[in-house]
């Protein structure tokens, strides 16, 4: 790890000023940033520790019935917040399917959204990576790429976003509140992360010095609480990144789907919102056929970026299953194995 200066601003405005200086990085819990620094992948010369800025660690119910999650709210605290988990169960399930209890106890709301890809060629500083070093090339393209993207990738980068949390947030139209020197702005979560294109080094819409201060979910999102699941397929039963995941939420009335929300994880460099699939589901009757159609639509543009064609078919099946689980209804209590196919608690097919 390189040397760095350490500053601990006491307000958002101080933080934003400090963070704008070249070489600076915001430090919250550090569960991702310190890992990257130990690997020599991130080399900030100044850490701006935002971890103690007052006012960023609250979970507030908004007058319109939505919720505002402070950027410093710990992942575990959010997932175990009873009122939040009741109203946004698939967000809680996604959070609890990620990482380990220790990491969830430390990792923050803002930090989770900013975690970097787990692409091994990004982590291996001896490999070529356009994200680490623009113009260097991408060793993943002809390398070990079974876990890589099947949607939205470019020749410059085929990495995926590892966040579980961001997937239901994308599905539920979460809004990211950002503060910079120019003041506060808001960005829909679906626009927050960027696809790689020719500039995979630019991962989000944040300008230098801009700080996530909160994430908001609307009352509209809570209306899906009765039929909302996160499903995460992985190579270990726990403590593993998603191969493919899906957040599926339905509003069902009189046996028909009034509205659907669907997003995928593990398939692209951003949480992948499947709006065409949602549109097709709206008005349909919940069941095998409509879910299959939705799955096909969601993956219509998918193409393998390497030895990963299986992920396209897997993603279709994950969507169909997640919708099936959602249609069956959100369980009273989060399953023992959140997000796991082994925790559906009932039949796979209703």
């Amino acid at each position: 790890m390189n040397r760095f200066d350490y500053v601990r601003p006491s307000s958002v405005s101080e933080a934003v000023a400090a963070g704008a200086e070249p070489g600076s990085a915001f430090l919250a819990a550090g569960t991702n940033l310190l890992d990257l620094m130990k690997g020599g992948i991130a080399r900030p010369t100044r850490l701006v520790d935002v971890g103690r800025i007052p006012g960023l660690d609250a979970i507030e119910t908004l007058p319109d019935g939505g919720v505002r999650i402070g950027a410093l709210v710990r992942n575990a605290d959010l997932a175990y917040h009873q009122e939040f988990a009741r109203r946004f169960p698939m967000v809680a399930e996604a959070l609890l399917s990620g990482a380990s209890a220790q990491l969830r106890n430390a990792a923050t709301t803002g930090g989770n959204l900013l975690q970097r890809t787990r692409c091994p060629y990004f982590y291996d500083t001896a490999s070529a990576c356009n994200k680490r070093e623009p113009g260097a090339g991408c060793d993943a393209l002809a390398g070990e790429n079974r876990q890589h993207a099947v949607l939205g990738w470019s020749e410059a980068c085929i990495a995926t976003n590892p966040s579980d949390f961001a997937v239901p947030l994308a599905a539920l139209d979460a809004v990211v509140e950002i503060e910079g020197r120019g003041g506060r702005r808001e960005v829909p979560l679906t626009d927050f992360h960027r696809l790689p294109g020719d500039t995979p080094q630019i991962e989000t819409v944040l300008a230098p010095g801009e700080l996530i201060v909160a994430v908001r979910l609307s009352a509209d999102a809570a209306a899906f609480a009765g039929h909302a699941r996160y499903l995460k397929v992985r190579e270990r039963t726990s403590y593993a990144f998603a191969v493919v995941s899906a957040a599926a939420a339905l509003r069902i009335a009189d046996g028909r789907i009034e509205a659907a929300r669907l997003a995928l994880g593990g398939v692209a460099l951003k949480p992948w919102r499947a709006r065409e699939a949602e549109a097709a589901l709206a008005g349909a009757s919940p069941g095998f056929e409509s879910f299959q159609e939705a799955a096909a639509l969601a993956l219509a543009e998918a193409r393998p970026s390497g030895d990963n064609a299986y992920k396209i078919e897997l993603a279709r099946r994950v969507i169909a299953r997640a919708l099936t689980l959602a249609a069956a209804g959100t369980p009273e209590r989060l399953p023992a194995l959140p997000g796991s196919p082994f925790a559906s608690g009932g039949s796979l097919h209703d």
Partner: peptide, 25 residues
């Protein structure tokens, strides 16, 4: 161990991606 055929390097030389069973397995 996932080995890059070109470089010979182990690409999952860590306990996050070199999977050994966790308790839930």
């Amino acid at each position: 161990a996932v080995v890059d055929r070109r470089s010979g390097r182990v690409m999952n030389a860590n306990l996050g991606e070199y999977h050994v069973p966790v308790n839930a397995d």
